[in-house]
C-alpha cells in the first residue's frame, strides 16, 4: 500500500511582526506631549505658585517680626522651606487636572490604543509634573532669598534637599493621579484639593515645629510624608542640627534620622506610584 502524505502549512500570521516601539522613545513622546499641553495653559504653571510665594515673601517675614522659632533659626527661612510643602502638592494636584481633562475630553483613549505599555502614560505625566514642580520650586526659593531668607548651602545639603523634594513630589503626583482616576468629576476633584494638598501642610511642621502640636496630632503628623520631607529639607538647608528630625525620631544622629525620614518619603512615593498605576489601569481598561 502506498501512503501519500502531504504537509498542510500551519496558518501564518499576516505580514511581518509589527515594529516595537522602544519604551524610552514612547516615554519621551508622552512627556513632550504633556509638557506641550501644560505650556498651552500657563495658568497651570502660575496659579500653584501664588499662595506659596505669598507665604514666603509676605506672611513669613511679617510673622518673623512677631515670633521666634528658637534654636537660632530665622523664621523667614524656616517658613520658606515650609512653603515647599504647599507648593509641591498644589502643583501636582493641578497636574492631576490634566489627567481628568485627558479622560473627559482629551486624547486618553487614543493613547490607550497605542502599542506601548500603559503605565508609561502615568510616567509621562509624572515626569512633567516633576519638571514643573522643580521650576516652581526654584522660583519660590529665589523669591525667598530676594526677600531675605538665608540658606546654609552645601553640596550634601543640596543633595538631601533635592532627594527629599523629588520623593515628596513623586508621592504628591501619585496621590493626584490616583484621585484624578477615582473621582468622576472635575468639580469634585477640585473640592478635594484642600483636603489633600493644604490640610496636611498645617499639621506637618510647615509653620511651626510639630512638638508645638497637641500630643495626638503630633503622632499623626509623624505619619505624614510631608513632615518627614520638610524635616529633611530643613536639615539640608536651614537646620544642620536636625531639630525637626529629632522631633520625629528622638535620636541624636541627624544624618541617620535624615536617611530614615528620606526612606519614609521614598516608600510613600513608591507605594503611591503603584496605587496610581493600578487606579489608572482600572479606569483605562473596563
Amino acid at each position: 500500500m502506498t501512503t501519500i502524505t502531504t504537509t498542510v502549512p500551519a496558518p501564518t500570521r499576516l505580514g511581518p511582526p509589527p515594529a516595537r516601539v522602544k519604551p524610552l522613545s514612547a516615554f519621551a513622546t508622552l512627556s513632550r506631549r504633556r509638557f506641550a499641553l501644560s505650556a498651552s495653559t500657563p495658568r497651570e504653571l502660575l496659579v500653584p505658585l501664588l499662595t506659596p510665594i505669598l507665604f514666603a515673601v509676605v506672611i513669613a517675614p511679617a510673622l518673623a517680626k512677631m515670633v521666634g522659632i528658637g534654636n537660632g533659626l530665622d523664621y523667614k527661612t524656616y517658613v520658606a522651606v515650609g512653603t515647599v510643602g504647599l507648593l509641591v502638592p498644589l502643583s501636582c494636584m493641578f497636574a492631576g487636572l490634566g489627567v481628568i481633562v485627558d479622560r473627559d475630553s482629551g486624547a486618553r483613549r487614543e493613547l490607550l490604543a497605542a502599542p506601548i505599555p500603559r503605565p508609561l502614560l502615568v510616567f509621562g505625566n509624572l515626569s512633567v509634573a516633576l519638571v514643573v514642580s522643580a521650576l516652581q520650586l526654584v522660583a519660590l526659593m529665589v523669591s525667598a532669598i530676594l526677600r531675605g531668607a538665608s540658606f546654609d548651602v552645601s553640596t550634601s545639603g543640596i543633595a538631601w534637599f533635592v532627594a527629599a523634594a523629588l520623593a515628596f513630589a513623586v508621592f504628591s503626583y501619585g496621590l493626584a493621579e490616583t484621585l484624578a482616576n477615582r473621582i468622576p468629576k472635575q468639580e469634585e476633584y477640585i473640592g478635594a484639593v484642600p483636603a489633600f494638598a493644604i490640610l496636611p501642610w498645617f499639621l506637618a511642621g510647615s509653620l511651626f515645629p510639630i512638638k508645638a502640636l497637641p500630643a495626638g496630632l503630633a503622632v499623626f503628623a509623624k505619619l505624614l510624608p510631608l513632615t518627614h520631607a520638610l524635616a529633611v529639607m530643613r536639615y539640608a538647608l536651614v537646620d544642620p542640627h536636625g531639630t525637626g528630625l529629632h522631633d520625629i525620631w528622638g535620636m541624636s544622629n541627624p544624618t541617620a534620622m535624615a536617611a530614615m525620614s528620606l526612606a519614609v518619603v521614598a516608600a510613600y512615593a513608591v507605594v503611591l506610584t503603584m496605587v496610581a498605576i493600578k487606579a489608572f489601569n482600572r479606569v483605562a481598561v473596563q
Partner: peptide, 16 residues
C-alpha cells in the same frame, strides 16, 4: 501595533 482606531467621540488634544 497593527491597528488604529477612530473613536465615536472626538479623542484629540485640543490644545495642540
Amino acid at each position: 501595533a497593527v491597528s488604529s482606531v477612530v473613536f465615536q467621540d472626538a479623542v484629540v488634544d485640543r490644545g495642540l
